[in-house]
Design a binder for these strands. Structure first.
Lengths: 343, 343
DNA sequence: GTGAAAGCGCTAACAG
DNA sequence: CTGTTAGCGCTTTCAC
């Protein structure tokens, strides 16, 4: 079914049908009804490709995700999608599948420039109005889309230069969690640090250190143990921290997996959580709701990051905003049962 | 940049540029190099929209997912994506976001026919070559896309009528798990059933019953307890099953969340897993790798379901296959530490 | 109010 | 080997 056929059936010109369809000119009631009837009967749907070509705007957004199976990605896509639906945009999803391609050496992402270029080529070929790039780790990356003339927003990562980005606050969230522990009466701290070189780990440390410093609390260097974000490392770290006489009474694990590991370590050592030791995590992973006691943690605003990314992009597309905007959204405390008030 | 401009710069006709670009006619080396040079210099990318319009094929696949945040969805998308990339197709993702819209009353999905129609309208308008519909629960649904003339594949759900589908085997997998328990020497069984009306639950029950019947093992009706797939329900069910003298020595939980709940129930009752009681789950959820002991379970071939769905669809598009094909893929046993061999 | 016609960027006869 | 040209389905100016 094409416009032309509808026009023929209705005995009017293609222009008139187009007017009716888009409400773009005055059409007599009689004609309008005639045309609408035929459209309904035939189930005609206009060809968006042709329309886009003619109007030189696709209402298509390219979403490049580093890996769709990294669980935060789905929630960000969900957020992007909601705004897209409301504003009449469609999403082309490009999945780089970095996880299976590079395994753990994600820092060498620049190697994948070629693959990304390929994806971008297609997206631009599809005439997308803009691109959102969703990272699989929160970190700074090279502006992979540097030669993109159209608006770009980085989400769950960021880049140098004139590019907008949407992230969550690592530093502030860990700062607040730590403050909460301090206010609960804790003074003797242990830290289970994430991957030493990782940016979120550094930022989270900065946040907790700030809170401790402000309260004049010393953090002994032997009470800082490093792990690689995994349950296993968390358990080992927990044992190191807790298997000594003067073990810390509050453990800040930089993510939930490690917090859960430490929790299990405590159990094995016969140390009660939260009565003997309080533990907090980060991320609000599913797992914290299954373990006992539930681990107190912090929830990243994933869906919200999707909303904001899309809004930023659309503003940029419509010209409502220019230049780069860097948004850092707050995380929300999720209270579990792993923190004890001491007084 | 358009073909026309490139042609002008190279001093040839648009046809020639098109020939070079698509390798669709013999072009002299001299001309080819001249054109290629300009293309490279200008970074020209052909307009896929225009090409699709002209060729009347979009190489676009519509993927409708009931909810992208239901975790299996991401893996299926990943699988679809991999094939798409290899075969030169692009994915338009439509996310119905049913989870937030209907919460638990997903059986009333027909209400959402209107929303789905809207999505399909857009997809057809985009001239997609076919559609894959990814369910959030494994079940039979009305053929929501009944008036689609183009190929459709249902994934993680199915429908009546001439539609292809790709699923995993509930019945056979539970059958095999149960056989494994029987071979390990178990004879006294308990079942933690999922939502009574749910299809996977019924199928899984059918599978386990078949294995028990074949081995002439009786399943006492008081040893069947129902839950709603949640950790909490699993824990309650576990208590019911285990808090009596002659408790079963092997518990078949119909999913991992409930298995983990039952595992915790056992712990609270001082019953050792797997020494006193063996437990199995279903789904290979993340959680089973965190708990102690690791729960033996079964992994659904999610990525593979994505592959097969896409392959089926592409075969149908190319005319390589006609009629509906219904594929049921096997699950893979994931051995944990929750099953004891008794002899 | 309505229609004729140009043209968005591209492909593919067809002619030379 | 290369160019001319029609036309994919649509919007939009301009005329009537």
């Amino acid at each position: 079914m094409t416009l032309k056929e509808i026009a023929a059936m209705a005995g009017v010109s293609v222009a008139t049908v187009s007017y009716v369809l888009n409400n773009t000119a005055q059409v007599s009631d009689e004609t309008r009804q005639k045309v609408e009837k035929i459209i309904k009967e035939t189930g005609y749907r206009s060809n968006i490709l042709a329309k886009s070509l003619r109007k030189n705007e696709s209402r298509l957004i390219g979403v490049i995700v580093e890996d769709v199976t990294v669980w935060h990605t789905a929630y960000i896509i969900d957020g992007i999608n909601e705004i897209a639906e409301a504003r009449g945009y469609n999403i082309i999803l490009s999945n780089l599948r970095l996880l299976s391609k590079i395994e753990s050496q994600f820092e060498h992402i620049s190697i994948f420039k070629k693959e990304i270029d390929k994806v971008v080529d297609v997206l631009i070929g599809m005439q997308v109005d803009g691109i959102i790039y969703v990272g699989m780790h929160d970190r700074k990356i090279n502006d992979i889309l540097h030669d993109m003339k159209k608006p770009v927003v980085y989400c769950y990562c960021y880049t140098d230069g004139e590019r907008s980005s949407v992230r969550y606050s690592n530093e502030k969230s860990e700062y607040q969690l730590t403050q909460m522990l301090i206010q609960s009466g804790h003074r003797n701290f242990g830290v289970i640090y994430g991957l030493k070189e990782s940016e979120p780990a550094k930022l989270r440390f900065k946040g907790l250190k700030k809170a401790l410093d402000e309260a004049d609390i010393e953090l002994k260097s032997e009470n800082i143990v490093y792990g690689n974000w995994t349950y296993k490392d968390g358990k080992e770290a927990g044992k190191k921290l807790l298997n000594k006489k003067d073990y810390p009474h509050a453990i800040i694990a930089m993510n939930d997996d490690m917090a859960v590991g430490a929790n299990d370590a405590a159990k094995e050592l016969g140390i009660r959580i939260p009565d003997d030791v309080s533990i907090i995590g980060f991320d609000n992973a599913d797992i914290v709701h299954y373990v006992s006691p539930k681990i107190t943690t912090v929830d990243r605003p994933l869906q919200e990051m999707g909303y904001r990314s899309m809004e930023l992009l659309l503003d940029s597309i419509s010209g409502a905003s220019v230049g780069d905007v860097n948004i850092t959204l707050p995380c929300a405390l999720v209270e579990g049962e792993s923190v004890k008030k001491r007084n």
